[in-house]
């Protein structure tokens, strides 16, 4: 049984179609990488999967017991205001809310999980700092820690260009970390990335948003396709 299935999905803003004929299906534990040019509708697709936006046509079908599945999300650009007073710990902890159900306050366990994820992202020393005073890359890590807090072993992690603004060392670490989370904790990952080589190295499936018929298949299939080879070469032929 697939976790998420998109059927003939098309995306539009006020009837201006952005992408169409999106068909894909992923199961629990898969690692889907969405690639494509700027403006090809990747972020829009993520928002549609999350239900933040209605599909123009077609549908997104979740596994029937998916309401038990915790979704972690990292937006490409947060709508967070520049001068919002919030400490790093408060931001990360807010990711635990969906596991609170009807509890009004956070439990000890929630705080431990938040600390653990902050340590994973290397921002535990910034715990009491103000979020708005962090550098772009540090903010990115904090938001990733928050996304990790919102998901669990049966969960789903949607990341929209999580590496933007990270230094090369941190980027490599992050790729390993996400792949680790995916393999060991069996968390399903959907990630938008412009780093096609890392995508090909780590993911199990690729969705290439291009033209009338976006490509979807396993990573190995993608390497063999014409558009795949072209895209990989355009990024410097390492393969």
């Amino acid at each position: 049984m697939s976790l998420i299935k998109c059927e003939n999905l098309s995306l539009a803003y006020d009837s201006a179609v952005v992408a169409k004929n999106i068909n894909f299906e992923i199961s629990r534990g898969d690692y889907l990488c969405i690639v494509g040019e700027n403006g090809s509708g990747k972020s829009t697709l993520i928002k549609t999967i999350l239900g933040l936006k209605k599909p123009h046509d077609g549908q997104v079908i979740f596994d029937t017991d998916s309401d038990a599945c915790a979704i972690g999300y990292m937006p490409q650009q947060t709508e967070v205001q520049k001068d919002f007073p919030a400490s790093v710990f408060e931001v990360v902890l807010s990711g635990r809310l969906n596991s609170c159900r009807f509890r009004p306050f956070f439990s000890k366990n929630d705080k431990i999980t938040a600390m653990h994820n902050m340590r994973l992202m290397g921002v535990d020393s910034l715990k009491n700092k103000s979020f708005q005073e962090l550098s772009g890359g540090q903010q990115q890590r904090v938001l990733l820690a928050r996304a990790l807090c919102a998901t669990n072993t049966k969960g789903l992690l949607l990341l929209d260009e999580p590496m933007t603004g990270l230094d090369p060392h941190a980027t490599a670490d992050m790729h390993k970390l996400i792949s680790d989370i995916n393999r060991r904790l069996n968390i399903t990952v959907i990630m938008v990335s412009h780093d096609i080589h890392a995508a090909v190295n780590y993911s199990t499936h690729i969705l290439h948003m291009v033209g009338e018929n976006p490509f979807f298949g396993t990573t190995d299939e993608y390497r063999e396709t014409e558009q795949g080879r072209e895209f990989l070469c355009a990024w410097g032929c390492k393969h």
């Binding site: 933040l52 999300y73 969906n98 009004p104």
Partner: peptide, 23 residues
Amino acid sequence: YVLFYNRIFAVTFDESFSRATGI
């Protein structure tokens, strides 16, 4: 306000993240 404090924070801080995670 006290009872919903954490949710009010989340919704004020980042509405689309909150909506995506089921608040």
